[in-house]
């Protein structure tokens, strides 16, 4: 009986510790990923036999005008959501960082929405957006003598209206991360700038923002992924979760959900998840590249 070396013993322990998690990751993460790709190549209504049809699902998708509307909406959430939320959260964080009086209280007010349940708050916002006589916003506008907004009953206003609670809920997180980033900038930089006679704007553009680059990269990536995957708000704020009116708010994830669990067109739904996966990957890689390299 040869004595095992310490290294060997520890390697065995490592595999013992890893055994259950590895099985889990293979079964619940890797196998389903491959399965999703394989289902996307079939025509399958979940009950009958899977029929292999190659890339037909993708061909049908790209010829479907509704799918293009859905993709357009998805990118609209992204293109509106990321800049607005980042700009707002940066401004708030930048100034909140300079305030001492009531700092904790103000920060808490901005942060609390992050802890709410998206579904619950979607219903609150849905109520706010109603026309008179129940919608809070239109009631308030009415008292000021301003004409009411259609909000969720408008093909142009509905998407921003659905996006607002998503931005609102994420703001607290972004502010906290921005403030941590601001705190991490060495004070000596600012002192040096002061000595050089730099103004507030110059300090902001030449020191603060460049120093915040890693924070910004992180937040852009995280929030992009979040907005591209928007679902809870749309499902709960539109009639019967259809993403209406006239598909004006329907994002990709809702489209996937409807295809898979309303119509049981599993192949078609899986094909759409593959599209979502590719979009997320391309955008993440692209953003990491651009934001890291163009110094």
């Amino acid at each position: 009986m040869s004595k095992r070396t310490i290294a060997q013993k520890r390697a065995i322990w490592a595999w013992v510790f890893m055994a259950v998690p590895l099985v889990y990751f293979i079964l619940v993460r890797f196998y389903p990923t491959l399965d999703a790709f394989s289902i996307s190549l079939t025509d399958w209504n979940i009950v009958g036999e899977k029929r292999y049809i190659g890339f037909d699902n993708f061909v049908v998708l790209f010829n479907d005008p509704v799918f293009w509307v859905v993709l357009g909406n998805t990118f609209e959430y992204l293109i509106l959501g990321v800049p607005i939320s980042l700009l707002l959260s940066f401004i708030i964080a930048y100034y909140l960082d300079q305030i001492r009086f009531g700092h904790g209280f103000l920060r808490a007010c901005y942060f609390i929405p992050f802890l709410t349940t998206a579904v619950a708050m979607a219903w609150v916002w849905r109520w706010f957006y109603q026309p008179v006589p129940i919608g809070m916003i239109n009631l308030a506008l009415g008292q000021l003598g301003i004409a009411q907004f259609e909000f969720l009953r408008s093909t142009t206003q509905a998407l921003p209206a659905v996006l607002a609670p998503a931005i609102w809920a994420g703001l607290g997180f972004q502010i906290v991360i921005f403030m941590a980033g601001l705190r991490a900038i060495p004070k000596t930089y600012y002192e040096a700038a002061k000595v050089d006679g730099a103004g507030a704007w110059q300090t902001l553009t030449e020191i603060t923002l460049p120093q915040l680059r890693p924070t910004i990269v992180f937040l852009v990536v995280i929030s992009s992924i979040g907005f591209l995957r928007i679902f809870d708000q749309v499902y709960n704020m539109t009639q019967e979760g259809e993403g209406g009116p006239l598909n004006a708010t329907r994002p990709l994830v809702l489209h996937i959900y409807k295809a898979a669990f309303d119509d049981f067109e599993m192949g078609m739904a899986a094909a759409q998840t593959v599209v979502l996966f590719l979009i997320l990957m391309v955008i993440t890689v692209f953003q990491l590249r651009v934001l890291r390299h163009d110094r």
Partner: peptide, 15 residues
Amino acid sequence: TLMIPTEMLVIPWYI
């Protein structure tokens, strides 16, 4: 696995 969106897995998970 961090690269794979949950939305892609829900169909295989359901099955």
